[in-house]
Design a protein around this nucleic acid. Structure first.
Lengths: 109, 109
DNA sequence: TTTATTAATCGTAATATTGCAATATAATAA
DNA sequence: TTATTATATTGCAATATTACGATTAATAAA
């Protein structure tokens, strides 16, 4: 199969999972961290910074773009990427509310 | 290929990605939410609660157990699962510090 | 116009994930 | 001992992901 049954879950559950999935690769975490640190970044710099081939970085950037967490502006022959602040805040809020639910001591373990 | 090059990333990046990957499926998000809500939960209840087959739930539980975020206690013929509070707190801290980095306005986009 | 430069896309191989039927295992009940 | 119950494991099919070489497209520079 290999196909997630999204229809049996809530929108919230699917949303959290979708964003988490995008965060679920170290290259994409590294890209986001670098974009935050450098503020804005040319794609080629990411290829140098992270040790993966250009098509691979491009593919990871595409996935991050798909969830709207980054955006790219064409500057001549290069593309400048940066974090979408509104989306970043939205995601932060979503994760905080998910993670801030405090599990209390359970009866069995 | 299909094989992540973990060796070129920092431990922090790999850790975030590993946890995010575990959160990257709505069934696992649903399991965690249910465990938090109900406080502790028999595996069979999760099969009823979520609409997936028993082996599928068992597999998702295994993945959550692998990252240490849940633990199970045998109670007769059934297994009672619950959140590992220490790990939950650790993960919360990790994600908060990742997400709390505020991206500033960039020059290009 | 020709030649870089830069990034996206295509194609593909290797591997991982998702989901479930069938089966195995382990503990209790009859 | 023989069910019964609850969960884990195995095996497998369908699909997704990761990575990269080759190619393409678009702009810039010569």
């Amino acid at each position: 199969m290999g196909l997630t049954k999204t229809e049996i879950f809530t929108d919230q559950q699917n949303n959290i999972a979708q964003i988490a999935k995008a965060f679920g690769h170290p290259a994409r975490v590294a890209i986001l961290q670098h974009l935050i640190k450098i503020n804005a970044c040319i794609c080629g710099d990411l290829v140098d910074e992270i040790g993966l081939a250009q098509p691979t970085i491009s593919q990871h950037l595409k996935e991050l773009k798909n969830i709207g967490i980054i955006q790219g502006n064409i500057e001549g022959t290069s593309v400048c990427y940066c974090i979408n602040q509104d989306k970043w805040t939205e995601i932060k809020t979503m994760f905080m509310s998910f993670l801030s639910q405090e599990p209390t001591n359970s009866s069995c373990c």
